[in-house]
């Protein structure tokens, strides 16, 4: 991605914990995985990716475990038989990681306010100003298609997570059908949500092939992504 996209500012943070939350279909797992991948190319610090997606039984970051481990990202998720369970398993080591960890910790928090319950149960371990908590917004999802929907969803999550958002990620997408219009529509919506909530737009993300042909400039960093979670009939080389 570096070769073709030199004109963009990429996401950066001085915080040591990034919490990524969105409802299903927001693309929070792809964002978490791609962000972790991106930081492996820029940062020498160790990266830990935690799967806190407790309600989605199918497409989760556990699926890309091997790919991430190969890149040197440490992945924390239930193992063995529990890998396939749709049980609310909150691993005991996660609390410890939040309290003390080396390098960067990325938490992939799943499934609307339900998934945020898991975060809420460990919220007291987070120190103010030591983390980013970002809402991943997809304008093509029913509950986050307009400003009021986004704000209501974020408020629900905050109440359950017992933590406040510090930023937004615009990740408007239609999976393989994502085009320029979808990404720009999401950018516009996220800017409006940003104006209304006072939260900064942390970055905009989307299919890297779309960004490569884009002439638009954005007022925020950009994270071009490649898709990690494929359907059983899809091939990696054709998924871009």
């Amino acid at each position: 991605m570096e070769k073709t996209l030199t004109g963009y500012r990429y996401p950066d943070t001085s915080k040591k914990i990034i919490i990524i939350i969105g409802g299903f279909g927001s693309g929070k797992t792809e964002v978490s995985v791609n962000l972790a991948k991106y930081f492996t190319t820029t940062d020498k610090t160790p990266i830990t990716l935690v799967d806190l997606d407790l309600v989605n039984p199918y497409f989760r970051s556990r699926e890309v475990l091997e790919e991430m481990e190969a890149l040197g990202v440490h992945v924390v998720c239930p193992t063995g038989g529990k890998f396939y369970a749709d049980l609310p398993i909150l691993l005991p080591q996660i609390k410890g990681l939040v309290e003390s960890h080396e390098g960067l910790l990325i938490l992939d928090v799943g499934g609307d306010s339900q998934g945020a319950k898991a975060l809420g149960s460990i919220s007291s371990f987070f120190v103010d100003d030591s983390y980013e908590m970002v809402a991943v917004l997809n304008s093509r999802r029913p509950q986050t298609s307009d400003v009021s929907g986004c704000l209501a969803t974020m408020q629900r999550i905050e109440l359950t997570a017992k933590l406040k958002f510090t930023g937004l990620v615009s990740n408007s997408h239609m999976i393989e059908e994502t085009d320029l219009d979808v990404i720009l529509e999401g950018y516009e919506l996220s800017q409006a949500v940003s104006a209304e909530s006072g939260l900064p737009l942390f970055f905009i993300s989307g299919k890297h092939t779309v960004f490569e042909h884009m002439k638009q400039e954005f007022d925020c960093p950009v994270l071009p992504m490649t898709r990690s979670m494929l359907k059983p009939w899809e091939r990696k080389e054709k998924s871009d």
Partner: peptide
């Protein structure tokens, strides 16, 4: 109506 991204289960409910 614009195309939306939906989980099969949600789409079945809306249908």
């Amino acid at each position: 109506m614009a195309k939306r991204l939906m989980k099969g289960n949600e789409a079945i409910g809306e249908a």
